[in-house]
Design a protein around this nucleic acid. Structure first.
Lengths: 152, 152
DNA sequence: GCGCTTTGCGTGCCATCACAATAATTGCAG
DNA sequence: CTGCAATTATTGTGATGGCACGCAAAGCGC
């Protein structure tokens, strides 16, 4: 058994639980969004992030910032944005001061679809959480997700 | 803005944090395992799960149980097991009582590689957690991962 | 202004995954 | 015993992601 450190074993258990919970929720939401709105979790997430930026200011993010927000590689982000742009949900436009930078902006259609899909997303999320709270290993994580810290 | 329910907004924030944390950790561990042991996170996870079963009893799981454990579709599980079998890390054998069922067993080489990769995995996990604990939104989740409920 | 390095984005290629369809086996009703 | 539904694993197909690479633009030293 090579007598692994018990503290590390605990960490591994926690990570395993986190991974399992994430997978369950993602799968559940994915099916719901896909069936009702032809959206993937990533696509929904991107629209959501961009729309939140919109609330604050100009409503635009550079590709790199987007990639960081959704935890994707740059190449995957390029394709994700391209897909949504082709569907008319997003718009690209060049940064005037730095022509390398490319901003993305949610279109009216994108906002519409987002608000339309939000209830589906939230409902599926709640279902998945309720489901997962029945599993002892996942319950503590579920509680934290349900009551996020304190956003300053 | 359609005035979304604040409780649901909180849920969405929690889910977003969970997703971000998972992505960060997975990416970090993935690179470490890939570089040092030519293993993906999923492959490591599968070896780990199977080896734990081995501790308990016969050390075998059916494909379906495996799929559930690692949160993958049946088809992906088939191919994951096939890949590891081709590398000599796993073995398949038919269930004697139900010839539909197929058990998987970790080989000596598999156990060896697993124990070899475990420190890499644990170190990368700790790094990722320490890193994430600096981000306010992720900190509460990190704490739960670090101290899972009750170690029985 | 010229050339080199850095940065940001897009593309080719391959690996992996989910869904649908298929094959093999079991269980059950009649 | 026969036929049909249910279960389990596998395979075909299309979609998505990551890495390596290339191109364009900006920054910098001279």
């Amino acid at each position: 058994m090579t007598a692994t450190d018990p503290a590390l074993t605990a960490l591994a258990q926690g990570w395993c639980a986190l991974s399992a919970l994430h997978g369950r929720i993602e799968t559940h939401i994915e099916r719901a969004l896909q069936a009702k709105h032809d959206l993937s979790v990533r696509e929904y997430s991107l629209l959501d992030v961009l729309s939140r930026q919109h609330d604050g200011e100009g409503g635009h993010l550079q590709m790199k910032q987007v990639a960081d927000a959704v935890v994707l590689s740059q190449s995957a982000t390029t394709r994700l944005v391209t897909r949504l742009e082709d569907r008319g949900l997003l718009e690209r436009y060049l940064c005037p001061t730095d022509r390398r930078g490319i901003y993305t902006n949610v279109t009216e259609a994108g906002l519409l679809l987002l608000e339309e899909a939000r209830p589906t997303n939230d409902a599926a999320l709640r279902e998945a959480l309720n489901d997962a709270s029945q599993v002892p290993e996942l319950a503590p994580l579920v509680r934290v997700v349900e009551s996020p810290h304190v956003p300053a």
